[in-house]
């Protein structure tokens, strides 16, 4: 792993990250090794966030740098090649367009070895159903920031069940106002308070 790259990623030093990625590529370092360094840097970002040294502003910037860097490697960081742990499908429930939290979760999951399918915002139930059928994920995530959309999550989860797709599937929910009581109300499996928790939970469930 490249110490230089890890530190530059952790310190959000975009110019250095991009130069370093180019240099490593020129030295024929395998894409997966470069990604591993970026991922290592991202987990330091996650730790600093938990320790309140970093805030939303830094999380967003880290996601941006990570995405820019993975473009240089040819998008390998978010393709199946880099995904060691399987597929994670996620979107923001219909009637809700908040996507900052969702984007952070998808980026952090992507940079931690999951193959992420991002369904976007204002996602109707059918779209979740189609994605579950197509990608057969073990874990899906539903983001929701509006208390007025809790019933939509509930409906979505009930429909997933009715379609017989719930059996080996864990459904995570998250977003500002979502808590344990919401989780019970909508019938989800688990609430995650942040992206790091989502990684931990998914890894555990996927048996990593």
């Amino acid at each position: 792993m490249s110490k230089n790259l890890i530190n530059a990623m952790a310190d959000l030093n975009e110019d250095v990250v991009l130069e370093e990625v180019k240099a490593l590529k020129a030295q024929n370092v395998p894409a997966l090794d470069i990604i591993a360094s970026l991922q290592e840097g991202m987990s330091i970002v996650g730790k600093r966030f938990e320790e309140k040294e970093y805030f939303l502003s830094e999380l967003i910037m880290s996601a941006e740098i990570f995405n820019e860097a993975s473009k240089l490697i040819g998008g390998a960081a978010d393709g199946e090649a880099a995904s060691r742990y399987g597929t994670f499908v996620m979107g923001t429930i219909y009637d809700d367009i908040h996507d900052i939290g969702k984007n952070i979760v998808t980026t952090v999951m992507g940079s931690n070895g999951f193959n992420v399918i991002d369904l976007g915002v204002d996602v109707p139930t059918e779209k979740y159903i189609d994605a579950i059928k197509e990608y057969k994920p073990k874990v899906i995530g539903i983001s929701c920031l509006l208390t007025t959309a809790f019933d939509n999550i509930k409906e979505c989860i009930q429909t997933i069940e009715k379609e017989g797709l719930r059996k080996d599937l864990k459904i995570l929910i998250g977003g500002g106002p979502v808590d344990e009581a919401t989780c019970r109300y909508v019938g989800a499996d688990h609430v995650c308070k942040n992206a790091q928790e989502t990684v931990e939970y998914s890894k555990k469930y996927m048996g990593v």
Binding site: L12, E14, S57, I60, M61, E64, I100, N103
Partner: peptide
């Protein structure tokens, strides 16, 4: 937009 603006603050 919030995410783009926060990037401006760094870039």
């Amino acid at each position: 937009t919030m995410a783009k603006f926060m990037q401006d603050l760094f870039k």
